[in-house]
């Protein structure tokens, strides 16, 4: 049964990279009654543990989202900004943004002859306030904002912002609530700053020093009217990663996830992503190396205010995380 209420809360919570306070508090509230230990590391990663005496397994889903950061508040009361994470100027025009304090703005552009030459520097935020003093008081350099968009759900899919990677957080939370009966020492990590270079996972991987690591994150699909050649599709099941730019999945981990899927009747598909990376990138290079893999959620329209994923795929991912935690 899909927990729409939880997914909506996770998607709507403010938490761009480096500003994960609210989303961390939300997740702590959600899981604190189910874990043996819970802690926040110096970078802000939330590390929840289900103790055991066996193999040390680390799961990681990042709780930060992409956003914008204010670089300048001008005399007229407009805000200039740059991106936090992978956002391009041409995809931002007209979007509605919201700040941590609840104030909002819309992205406008300077008059341009050649629309192709649009850069971040030609865009500004109009916060809809004519009182310049109010703008000065309420917006400062370094303030961050994120997409504002309405959560929407159909019978099959969810359309929402920050599915990357709040749907991964959702999967870990649901798996954690139904943690399998096992000797394994399992760490559920909700990492920070993935969108700016998987920074949280780097330090969490070092401190936990696991025997096996599995990131849970979204991936692109090849089922839309465009040119990406990819076998991954919505409703194709949990995607077991084989390779992306940050990682070649350890063959034994790939085989293990495949075996677990087949044994437990979990629908799965193989994924090769020809760009991007996940938390498993830095984790697998931590210390002497960590055999690592990724369970991916096929997601369309990535890094936009309306990311789309299938509720059935999410269920399959939860099953696979639970199977891996107990294996």
């Amino acid at each position: 049964m899909f927990n729409s209420e939880l997914m909506k809360k996770l998607s709507d919570c403010f938490g761009p990279s480096g500003r994960e306070k609210y989303i961390r508090e939300l997740i702590i509230d959600e899981i604190k009654d189910y874990v043996d230990e819970i802690s926040t590391d110096p970078l802000g990663n939330l590390i929840a543990r289900k103790k055991g005496s066996g193999k040390k397994i680390m799961f990681s889903a990042h709780m930060d989202q992409i956003g914008l950061i204010v670089t300048h508040v001008d005399e007229k009361g407009f805000l200039r900004f740059t991106n936090v994470g992978g956002l391009k100027a041409k995809n931002l025009l007209g979007l509605h943004m919201v700040f941590a304090n609840g104030l909002e703005g819309v992205i406008c552009q300077e008059e341009l002859k050649d629309k192709e030459k649009l850069t971040m520097g030609k865009l500004f935020l109009d916060v809809g306030v004519t009182d310049k003093e109010f703008v000065k008081q309420n917006f400062r350099v370094g303030d961050m904002c994120v997409f504002k968009s309405q959560y929407y759900e159909t019978e099959d899919c969810v359309i929402c912002k920050a599915a990357d990677d709040r749907v991964g957080c959702y999967i870990l939370i649901e798996a954690l609530k139904n943690h399998p009966n096992t000797d394994n020492d399992v760490y559920y990590v909700f990492s920070v700053q993935e969108e700016v270079g998987c920074r949280g996972a780097k330090t969490a991987g070092y401190s936990i020093n696991p025997d096996l690591a599995i990131a849970v994150d979204v991936t692109a699909t090849g089922d839309t009217p465009d040119e990406i050649i990819m076998e991954v599709k919505l409703d194709g099941g949990a995607a077991i990663k084989i390779k992306d730019n940050s990682l070649i999945v350890h063959p034994e981990v790939k085989d293990m996830l495949t075996y677990l899927s087949e044994k437990n009747n979990i629908k799965y598909q193989y994924e090769i992503l020809e760009f991007g990376g996940t938390d498993a990138g830095p984790i697998h290079l931590s210390r002497e190396g960590v055999p690592s893999g990724v369970i991916s959620i096929p997601t369309r329209n990535l890094h936009t205010s309306g990311e789309i994923f299938s509720k059935k795929d999410v269920e399959e991912c939860i099953k696979l995380v639970r199977a891996a935690a107990g294996h």
Binding site: S246, I248, H284, L285, R287, E288, G289
Partner: peptide
């Protein structure tokens, strides 16, 4: 291992 994909094996083996 894995030099061609980002000098990855050198990172872990030199740590070891």
């Amino acid at each position: 291992a894995q030099e061609e994909t980002g000098t990855r094996g050198a990172k872990t083996s030199s740590y070891k």
